Amino acid sequence: MTNERRVLVHPDKDTLAGAVAARFITKVLDLLDDQDVVHVVLTGGSMGAAMLEAVRDSPAHKSVDWARVHFWWGDERWVPTGHEDRNDRQSREALLDSLGLPDGNLHPFPASDSGMSLDEAAEAYAAELGRFGAAGYPHPVFDIVFLGVGPDGHVASLFPHRSGIQVVDRPVIAVRESPKPPPERLSLTRPVINAAQRVWLVLAGADKASALGLALAGASRDEVPVAGIKGRRRTVFFIDQDAAAEVPDSLIAREY
Results as ranks from 00 to 15, higher is better:
residue 1 M to K: 11
residue 3 N to K: 10
residue 4 E to A: 14
residue 5 R to M: 14
residue 7 V to H: 12
residue 8 L to H: 08
residue 11 P to N: 12
residue 13 K to A: 15
residue 13 K to E: 14
residue 19 A to G: 06
residue 19 A to C: 02
residue 21 A to K: 01
residue 21 A to G: 03
residue 21 A to R: 02
residue 23 R to S: 13
residue 24 F to T: 15
residue 24 F to G: 00
residue 24 F to C: 09
residue 25 I to A: 00
residue 26 T to G: 15
residue 33 D to L: 13
residue 33 D to E: 15
residue 36 D to E: 15
residue 38 V to Q: 03
residue 38 V to L: 03
residue 49 A to P: 01
residue 50 A to D: 12
residue 53 E to A: 13
residue 54 A to D: 05
residue 54 A to N: 07
residue 58 S to P: 10
residue 59 P to F: 07
residue 60 A to V: 05
residue 61 H to R: 15
residue 61 H to C: 12
residue 62 K to E: 14
residue 62 K to W: 00
residue 62 K to A: 15
residue 64 V to I: 13
residue 68 R to N: 13
residue 73 W to S: 05
residue 75 D to T: 00
residue 76 E to D: 11
residue 77 R to I: 00
residue 79 V to P: 04
residue 79 V to C: 11
residue 81 T to C: 05
residue 86 R to L: 04
residue 87 N to Y: 04
residue 89 R to C: 01
residue 93 E to P: 03
residue 94 A to C: 08
residue 95 L to A: 07
residue 97 D to R: 11
residue 101 L to I: 08
residue 103 D to W: 02
residue 104 G to S: 12
residue 112 S to W: 10
residue 113 D to W: 10
residue 113 D to S: 00
residue 115 G to R: 10
residue 117 S to G: 13
residue 118 L to Q: 08
residue 120 E to G: 14
residue 123 E to T: 13
residue 125 Y to Q: 13
residue 126 A to S: 14
residue 127 A to G: 09
residue 129 L to F: 11
residue 130 G to M: 01
residue 131 R to N: 13
residue 131 R to A: 10
residue 132 F to I: 10
residue 133 G to I: 08
residue 136 G to A: 10
residue 139 H to G: 04
residue 140 P to H: 00
residue 140 P to Q: 07
residue 141 V to T: 14
residue 142 F to N: 00
residue 145 V to H: 03
residue 146 F to M: 12
residue 149 V to G: 07
residue 150 G to H: 03
residue 150 G to P: 02
residue 150 G to N: 07
residue 150 G to F: 08
residue 151 P to W: 01
residue 154 H to W: 03
residue 154 H to R: 05
residue 155 V to P: 04
residue 155 V to D: 12
residue 157 S to I: 03
residue 157 S to R: 11
residue 160 P to C: 06
residue 161 H to A: 14
residue 162 R to N: 03
residue 163 S to F: 01
residue 165 I to H: 03
residue 166 Q to R: 15
residue 170 R to N: 04
residue 172 V to M: 05
residue 175 V to L: 09
residue 176 R to V: 12
residue 177 E to D: 15
residue 179 P to H: 05
residue 180 K to H: 04
residue 180 K to C: 09
residue 182 P to F: 02
residue 184 E to N: 13
residue 186 L to C: 02
residue 189 T to E: 09
residue 190 R to D: 04
residue 192 V to L: 04
residue 192 V to N: 00
residue 198 R to Q: 15
residue 200 W to R: 10
residue 200 W to L: 05
residue 200 W to A: 10
residue 201 L to V: 15
residue 202 V to E: 08
residue 205 G to Q: 09
residue 209 A to V: 08
residue 210 S to Q: 14
residue 213 G to D: 06
residue 214 L to F: 10
residue 215 A to L: 06
residue 216 L to R: 08
residue 218 G to P: 08
residue 221 R to H: 14
residue 224 V to S: 10
residue 226 V to N: 00
residue 227 A to W: 11
residue 229 I to A: 05
residue 231 G to A: 01
residue 233 R to V: 07
residue 237 F to R: 06
residue 240 D to Y: 00
residue 242 D to F: 01
residue 248 P to D: 05
residue 248 P to Y: 11
